[in-house]
């Protein structure tokens, strides 16, 4: 019997490709954001409102992942920016290889912002680096304030928590302060935004966060 030592990570291949993507984004000054949340959290609607708020000259593109259908891609294409659907066919998360293939012939030099909507899932996407600058966890007020404790990995890894559907607050027993405390138990200092894509409340703050994040990327790129 001969034992071959293997000292490497099981997801090394994903990390290698994610590293290539990260480097390509860095070289071309592209801010890549990975939106992760349960099915129905409001990820697609959030991206619709986001794209709607961009001037038409904004160099933004979207990749949206689902197990089946082009439904989300069709919704997002209405705003005039490039959108591609990644249909995983059964895999419950996007991985770096899928993103690399979906980017295809898009030229990084022509983009400044890449928004990736992950498959609806609060668990598995947390483990797969897509080369993004930040993971954003999207959670609706209808999902309950205990979710950060129940699904700690994504709340720990996210740079921002967006609480969606705030228009439902009069109708659901959601304790916002408890939700925030739970999120900060798992991730002390996690930035939290609350908004409603129906009423528009909180959307200006989200747009401002995006602007600051893009500006910060440009500052880092200029310094580096």
């Amino acid at each position: 019997m001969h034992r071959v030592p293997l000292q490497q990570k099981i997801l090394q291949e994903n990390e290698r490709i994610a590293g290539e993507l990260r480097e390509a984004f860095r070289q071309h000054g592209v801010l890549c954001l990975n939106f992760i949340g349960s099915p129905g959290a409001g990820k697609t609607t959030l991206l619709e409102r986001t794209l709607e708020g961009f001037p038409s000259a904004t160099r933004v593109a979207v990749l949206t992942g689902d197990i089946q259908t082009e439904i989300d891609a069709r919704r997002l294409r209405r705003f005039g920016f490039p959108v591609r659907q990644i249909a995983t066919g059964g895999t419950c998360h996007l991985d770096a290889r899928m993103v690399q293939q979906a980017l295809g012939e898009w030229k990084m030099a022509e983009l400044e912002l890449l928004l990736i909507e992950n498959v609806g899932n609060l668990i598995c996407p947390a483990a797969y680096d897509l080369g993004e600058a930040a993971k954003i966890v999207v959670m609706s007020v209808a999902e309950g304030e205990d979710k950060p404790l129940k699904y700690p990995s994504i709340f720990f890894k996210a740079e921002l928590l967006i609480l969606t559907k705030s228009d439902l607050l009069p109708h659901v027993p959601f304790e916002g302060e408890i939700a925030r405390d739970n999120a900060h138990c798992v991730h002390p200092g996690l930035e939290i935004l609350q908004l409603s894509c129906i009423t528009g409340a909180g959307l200006p703050e989200w747009q401002m966060w995006l602007e600051h994040r893009r500006a910060a990327l440009n500052v880092r790129a200029a310094a580096g």
């Binding site: 019997m1 490497q8 990570k9």
Partner: peptide, 10 residues
């Protein structure tokens, strides 16, 4: 989440 070894027959 790591590989440690693979044992092969002689």
């Amino acid at each position: 989440l790591e590989f440690v070894y693979l044992e092969v027959d002689d």
